[in-house]
Design a protein around this nucleic acid. Structure first.
Length: 373
DNA sequence: CCCTCGATCAC
DNA sequence: CCTCATATCGAGGG
């Protein structure tokens, strides 16, 4: 069979968190609904995580401080709701299962996005691509109640840009014959992986559109953005990015980060507040059936700069050891950086492995148990 | 080559 | 005024 043209769908749930809240409380439908992450520092501190289109009409956007959103919504009958991660995760899983029932391969990109390989579904026939999109949208709606936007293209990059261009509740097909004209006029930021920083670098050599980007020689581009990124930009901008849709494997790391009650550089104060996150991580690791050989800390300074420290080991770490290493890492961080004050602090576990027969470790047992070697 | 760290992205 | 979680890249050191 011709491995030539695949038919890839990108499925993007519309204003996902806020849409779930609407679904759970139909009175909210059509109103400005804003799902917020409250940091707990003050009653109102935090950011917007998701907003309905009614709220967006007032300029509310994800990532915006809650205080600013409230200003924009002054005098408006708006509904602010706290984030309910587990609830959205459950809906997400239902959606992903729905997709898996329809196509062979589903690659979960995030809680609200997935790629679906529709090559088999369509028999490789682009005349069936629209039908594939309609079926995906209809199945997701009937099985979960959620609306989504579907972009379909010959590769993941084109499919994702297509869905971006069609939201909300849209369906956009970009067959191979249209890829070039579809991509050419777009700004570089339209490519997944190109954010403000990379876009600024490209702009510094006068490159603003995918058309311009696709015309660059690889060498100078590589000088500017590094080897891997240059290869990616070249292929992606030409519509020639051919990474296959594949199920994601095991998680490589898990982490938690919190906003501290007060800005501080007191290790005790920091580690105290990291007790819960650490326990939560231990639980998450246990649920995943993994142990960690590495642990790291993250600090966000009052100037909003990120500082990290990490250590890895050749055997898995017990909960007690994690705790101790986290403390040590914060001590050395704060000793080395005598002028930083932390606003936020976090912990992450990496080098995650399934326990071998040599090691047993459960979430809440303190001791690492070795068999005799 | 491996490790650590910071940056970036995108959510 | 500034959340939270993950992956990846590249630089620098060993």
């Amino acid at each position: 069979m011709s491995t030539q043209s695949r038919i890839i769908a990108h499925v993007d749930l519309d204003y996902f968190f806020a849409q779930v809240e609407e679904l759970l409380n139909p009175e909210l439908v059509g109103k400005p609904v804003v799902v917020c992450v409250y940091s707990g520092r003050t009653a109102e501190s935090g950011v917007v995580s998701s907003a309905t289109y009614a709220a967006r009409r007032y300029g509310v956007r994800a990532g915006m401080p809650i205080a600013r959103a409230k200003k924009l919504l002054q005098g408006v009958e708006a509904i602010l709701l706290p984030l309910r991660r587990e609830v959205y995760q459950n809906f997400s899983e239902k959606v992903m299962d729905t997709l898996r029932r329809e196509v062979d391969t589903v690659e979960v990109e995030s809680v609200d996005e997935a790629f679906a390989d529709g090559t088999r579904w369509t028999g490789g026939d682009w005349r069936k691509a629209f039908q594939l999109g309609q079926v995906i949208k209809a199945r997701v709606l009937s099985e979960t109640g959620l609306r989504c936007t579907v972009g379909i293209g010959p590769n993941k990059v084109v499919a994702k840009i297509a869905s971006d261009s069609a939201k909300p509740d849209g369906l956009k097909i970009v067959p191979p014959s249209e890829v070039s004209s579809f991509l050419k006029p777009l700004k570089c930021e339209a490519l997944p992986g190109v954010g403000p920083k990379l876009a600024a670098r490209l702009a510094s050599i006068g490159v603003k559109t995918l058309d311009q980007l696709s015309a660059l020689e690889i060498e100078p581009l590589s000088q500017l953005v590094g080897h891997k990124t240059a290869q990616y930009l070249r292929l992606a901008s030409r519509g020639e990015y051919e990474e296959q849709v594949k199920e994601k494997k095991e998680r490589k790391q898990i982490g938690r980060i919190i906003t501290l009650k007060n800005d501080t550089r007191e290790v005790d104060e920091i580690v105290d507040q990291l007790e819960e996150p650490l326990a939560s991580l231990a639980e998450a690791a246990a649920r995943l059936g993994v142990v960690a050989r590495g642990v790291g800390i993250i600090g966000i300074t009052t100037r909003l700069e990120t500082v990290t420290r990490a250590r890895s080991f050749d055997t898995p770490l017990s909960f007690e050891e994690l705790h101790e290493i986290v403390r040590t890492l914060f001590v050395s961080l704060l000793t080395e950086l005598s002028d930083v004050v932390l606003r936020r602090a976090g912990v992450r576990l990496f080098a995650l492995e399934r326990p071998t027969h040599q090691t047993r470790l459960t979430a809440f047992n303190a001791d690492k148990v070795y068999e005799l070697g």
